[in-house]
Design a protein around this nucleic acid. Structure first.
Lengths: 215, 215
DNA sequence: TACGGATTAGGACGAATGTACTAAAATCTA
DNA sequence: TAGATTTTAGTACATTCGTCCTAATCCGTA
């Protein structure tokens, strides 16, 4: 029972990632999961139910990380690792991030959760800034509008890096790509780091990528 | 003859913007343009032909601006105005930028042009940086990797700001939204501006938005 | 072993899609 | 005005889609 559902979700995810949600039919999923259409329909009455199950599979992981934020020791190394973990999970469900607008407008349930998550993410970044400034890793940004801009850029990057990726590159080495994109994300913060912060950033940088080309 | 094609394109654009390319059928377009399906099919044999016509309608405008870059006097005011113009055009064809990945994968012709455009855009930014540094509006970035990051952020923002917008906001006042997004885009450059550059930026800022809230 | 609910398969249904075809109408040209 | 070409409308076609329905099968339990 349980394993059949998992089997369906796994097949769906693979097919969605390969060809996009709209291009995959119920019949293709059934074939991919080695079962009949009727059986598939027994476990998931609507195609949308599969989408929602996959979304919450992914987002519960991301939410967990967001909720734990205030128990963690925030520094650039932690941020990099967190970003790597998030991006790894996102790329497992990349079909979603590549088609975000369409999928959100087709599922009010997902849309609702996604919207509520936005304000939590903003709070998360405010907390991160606070801690980085405390540790003298980040400069104290005086102008409030600059802080708002910075937050927007980080949030938008989180939503769109995969979308941008599929537009601009053919991703060959997934792990390497995730590393690149994580550094690219952190680089939004870079000009607002103190010298101490910048040293930490470039330390992580040379440690992680070493002799790998970044572009 | 010519005006019939225009009528079809206009109706298509409106419908695509309102409901998305995939959700609009040939029959709906025909109804929107006050003509029969048969007639529509006479002017555009494939639905894809409409998409391609719309794309080149939009992109030829953007390409024009890109090609003229080296004849222009580059400063922050020029950049802001250019960004405003581009965004205005993009929002007229917003269906495209909200569904970019899907549409690119469905039209090799568009995909090819889009890819070729990427390197031209990179060159454009390199030219802009050069001119801004010459005029002591921007600091000379020593680390090459930082310059690469900066370029990526600008290009990705250009591709995804509309995508982000529909995710996070309900756009009510279009003109105001375009202004906000243009400043948000310029703010990517902000930490790399000299004091002179920063003054120019905030000068434009207070001049343009005055008493309008930005967020 | 017999019963009953859970699971599976297969097919049917109605709706919608993009495109092709045909004939009528409108417009242009000589 | 007569003939030819372009434009228009209406319909047909084949396909695909998500979902529903029914009957067969499996499997744990009494």
């Amino acid at each position: 029972m349980e394993s059949t559902k998992k089997r369906i979700l796994k097949a769906s995810r693979n097919l969605f990632n390969a060809q996009g949600y709209s291009n995959i039919s119920i019949r293709m999923i059934a074939k991919g999961a080695n079962m009949s259409v009727g059986n598939l329909n027994y476990h998931f009455r609507k195609k949308n139910d599969i989408l929602e199950a996959l979304y919450f599979e992914m987002i519960s992981y991301l939410d967990l990380r967001l909720d734990e934020l205030n128990q963690k020791n925030i520094n650039l190394s932690y941020l990099l690792n967190g970003t790597l973990l998030n991006k790894r999970k996102m790329i497992e469900y990349r079909f979603f991030w590549v088609d975000l607008f369409f999928l959100l407008s087709n599922s009010p349930k997902i849309k609702k959760h996604f919207d509520a998550r936005l304000s939590k993410r903003k709070e998360g970044y405010a907390y991160i800034f606070e801690k980085l400034i405390e540790k003298k890793l980040m400069v104290n940004i005086k102008k409030k509008i600059e802080l708002t801009y910075l937050t927007s850029h980080l949030i938008n990057f989180g939503n769109t890096w995969l979308y941008s990726s599929v537009l601009n590159y053919q991703i060959k080495d997934v792990q390497n790509h995730i590393r690149q994109q994580s550094f690219l994300m952190l680089s939004i913060l870079l000009p607002y780091l103190t010298n101490k912060g910048k040293r930490e950033f470039y330390g992580l940088f040379s440690e992680r990528v070493k002799n790998k080309a970044l572009m």
